[in-house]
Amino acid sequence: MAPAVLVKNLKKSYGNVEAVKDVSFAIEPGEIFGLLGPNGAGKTTTIRCLCTLMTPDAGQLEINGISVLEDPRAARQMLGYIAQEVALDKVLTGRELLELQAAIYHLPKAKSRDRIAQMLALLEIEDIADKKTGTYSGGQKKRLDLAAGLLHQPAVLVLDEPTVGLDIESRTAVWNFLRQLQREGTTILLTSHYLEEVDALAGRVAIIDSGQVISSGTPAALKAEVGGDRITLRIREFTPDAEATSARDLLTHLPVVQEVIINSAQGNSLNLVVNQDADALTAVQTALKAANLPTFGISQSQPSLDDVYLAATGRTLMDAEMAATGKRDLKKEKKQAMR
């Protein structure tokens, strides 16, 4: 059976900026698949190419074995696309928007009425269905957008940053809804720069950075692959470079420690990869005490998806995010996104 979604060697540049250098992944039917990466990594561009909003420079895109580039209409029929920014017509009511949506997917009248009633009930927005969308809260807009995207019963639902800007309650509601959809057989592709979101929802994940897939698999496998436990150590709140370096040299020689990375973005805190050993923390603390180094904070944890990202790129997701914020030309990106 063909994968529900196939993306192979995708490439897309804007002028001389390579937004997507080489992205490949395959999603099995019924799976929730997460594309994780910092803003500007190429997630949205990948999705826009898949949803026929952009023509890639090179690569293969398939939905249920149908080539997106050769038969875009068939692909569109099978896709539901939920953009990051909810674009509703604020003058229309929710129901009118859904009616428009049903018509552009060519649902017969009776079926359209049934589906609209069904989706309004499912997303619990019946009571506001006849109010103008301009009066909706952020969470209500997202629900309406979900209802619109699912109206034609797409085999594959694609969501770009589904919970950005939502309150915790709405976010949980969206998560639960997506899980329910998956149980009913819908394949889901979502992008996120929230580790938590991908960890909570996705059966498999591809971590994407600077337009390339740097790692992919189940979250558990990815974490197991990087191995060991993590110790985050802060000698002082803001540790001087020299002190951080000497502490690193000291700790690298401990038998329990596998690797030490100085995280300059977090006040020169030290990120240690240690053997999965209950005594690791004690060993590190003893060594510090012997060298007369103070401890501002120390904690041990199992590897997270962020550690997977850190291991592959040498920086945490949040740091990448912050580094990207200053460099991106959001206005220019908006123009590129405009069609």
Binding site: I66, H106, Q153, A155, V156, E184
Partner: peptide, 29 residues
């Protein structure tokens, strides 16, 4: 089913677009 039925949503069942579809979408817009 609230969601999709992947088996039925195959390209083979997708009718070629005709005048009726064009009129439907134009009227809605």
């Amino acid at each position: 089913s609230i969601a999709s039925n992947p088996v039925s949503t195959s390209a083979a069942t997708l009718p070629t677009p005709g005048t009726a579809e064009f009129i439907q979408e134009t009227l809605a817009l």
